[in-house]
Design a binder for these strands. Structure first.
Lengths: 334, 334
DNA sequence: ACTCTCATTGTACACGTTTTCAGAAATCAA
DNA sequence: TTGATTTCTGAAAACGTGTACAATGAGAGT
């Protein structure tokens, strides 16, 4: 019943000091005589006193809590990001309140809930971000950082890779392999989002190589294995002989879907995925992929957030980490 | 700066009532005259008032927050459980504080942190649970439910499937396929844990069939793809012609590891996994698996927790959901 | 008109901290 | 020693809400 019987008063009484002093030693405040500090610490240990974070939060207006908005916990990409975030959060003694924005119901009252909890900051990740959502994120005057997400006018801090160049470079590899018709498979593309940059990068490579663009080679589907698998049919029916795929789950679906349709990979069709999650190694053939330091992106994002929350200056608000490329079985040896 | 300027007092003043009345309408308290209720609600909407959950938590000693202890966010099994938990939590207006117990550092101060945050309850999931951890979970007098985890003396509420029977039944299938030497691949097995029950179930089937038990057929490794892949070598070197594997990540590793060693699956070797996550469909061949209603387990666990937190009676504290079996490519047609 | 109820509303304290400000104690310089 | 600093400590006021309990008012019954 009594979750917490021992208060700061109990400690104060027992240690024969005032609660103010107890508060000081709990918070590691500078000036309290070593002798009393020791005395208080002993009582704290004896009584097993544990500061009430809620009361603390009320008094100090800081909760050492951050809100984490994640589209889908089971998505490898976001899960890995979250892992990076979580680790750094713990390092800095912040707790994370989870808030998952399962697809459609990504309403702004997610934000309001979090605000109600008095979080000190928020991290948003997602394949896209609705304009009103982003607007709300900006207008609440609270530290926010995006990761795995871009916002239109870079008003929010963010951590990403250069999706444009990563996709352009990867697409070039396919072109070098002689492909003329390269598919682009993505979650629904909205303007000024990560997907949009990926698409632009893909298009850039084609244009640079003097190849034409065709809407028929752009496929949109949900970010799931099933959706990718289903999309394989249309891809097989198209003229495409290779594909850039925007998420690993989809890529796995496309790969297996094509294989099941009798398309030989990589002999008849080459495929590049983009998140380099473990899935790329689990499929057969394994999947070539753009590599992203996903865990690090999460970690850096959280680190940025701690700085923002402590009003430290940020060297830069738009961080881009390095990407790379991993050749694997879904591509022929070059 | 001012995260929250508008307090209940502002609303009270504006609506020309006392703050007590505002509090009543916010909390949907029974008797407040419809007219005033309406009036207050209008002001709330106009001002954009949002109750401060921290102050509320302090005053009411309830935070509508639960702690979720998860070993690894990127593990498909736990991620799916978490999804179930999250959905139900939202349904009942509880927020989730994440606390990941990455492997070793599963120290009991995870619990203390959560307690400091004044969570109303906790859900623990994990492949195993350290005895001192479990003890602490029992001694704190707070609603707790385990899922995907068993505790020794069933002192804590829990949601699981009958791992013993599920494994026994699945192992029988392998026996029926003529296998005499069946491997058991698992994360490290400690007494009275989920793994232990799985092992016992596997052994039960062997004994019933008059087959001998051999330690040489029991393989322990971490719950990762890599560890499973590495273990494949020892498995190939053993006399085993089939295997029961305790997690999907491991199973994928074992499957690919064996395949890469030239072992033909399912012709030369049959394999059954146990979590039926999406991975089982991504590998080639696909993996036969025990099926568990993972999402539902999470959902049921969270529902139990809400009951506990509201002091409702529980019909049963040890819930077992139904398991099933999915035949797939890693087994020969029977 | 007068009392009695009951529905509705307001007052005031509690929740467990942090933090300001002032005061006490300790240290130092002379 | 004494006064001036400096260090350390305590009293008390926030922080924003919930909630007994008291107070008010309106109708019902006589």
């Amino acid at each position: 019943m009594d979750k917490q019987t021992i208060t700061i008063y109990d400690v104060a009484r027992e240690a024969k000091v005032s609660m103010a002093t107890v508060s000081r030693v709990v918070n590691g405040n500078a000036n309290v005589k070593p002798a009393t500090k020791e005395k208080v610490e002993k009582v704290i240990a004896d009584l097993g006193y544990r500061p009430n974070a809620v009361a603390r939060g009320l008094a100090s207006r800081k909760t050492t809590t951050v809100g984490l908005i994640i589209p889908d916990l089971t998505d490898q990409y976001f899960a890995e990001l979250a892992r990076g975030i979580e680790d750094v959060a713990r390092m800095y003694d912040y707790q994370i309140i989870l808030s998952s924005s399962n697809g459609t119901d990504m309403k702004t009252d997610l934000i309001d809930n979090l605000l109600g909890k008095q979080v000190d900051g928020m991290i948003y990740m997602g394949n896209q971000i609705a304009p009103d959502f982003e607007e709300r994120l900006i207008e609440i005057d609270l530290p926010v950082v995006l990761t795995g997400t871009l916002d239109v006018d870079k008003k929010l801090a963010s951590v990403n890779i250069d999706y444009f160049r990563a996709f352009s470079a990867a697409t070039k590899r396919l072109i070098e392999h002689g492909h003329k018709e390269i598919a682009f498979v993505s979650v629904p593309i909205t303007k000024h989002t990560k997907q949009d940059y990926k698409l632009k990068g893909y298009q850039d490579a084609l244009v640079q190589a003097g190849l034409g663009l065709s809407d028929k080679l752009v496929f949109e589907a949900d970010a799931t294995y099933e959706a990718g698998y289903a999309a394989a049919k249309s891809i097989a029916d198209s003229d495409a002989t290779a594909a850039m795929v925007a998420t690993d789950e989809m890529a796995a679906g496309v790969l297996n879907g094509l294989t099941d349709l009798g398309v030989k990979i990589p002999e008849d069709f080459e495929l590049i995925s983009s998140n380099n999650s473990q899935l790329t190694q689990i499929t057969r053939p394994t999947m070539a992929s753009i590599t992203q330091p996903i865990y690090d992106m999460g970690a850096v994002a959280m680190r940025m957030l701690t700085k923002l929350m402590q009003h430290e200056a940020l060297d830069e608000t738009q961080i881009e980490l390095n990407y790379g490329f991993a050749e694997r079985g879904s591509m022929r040896k070059s």
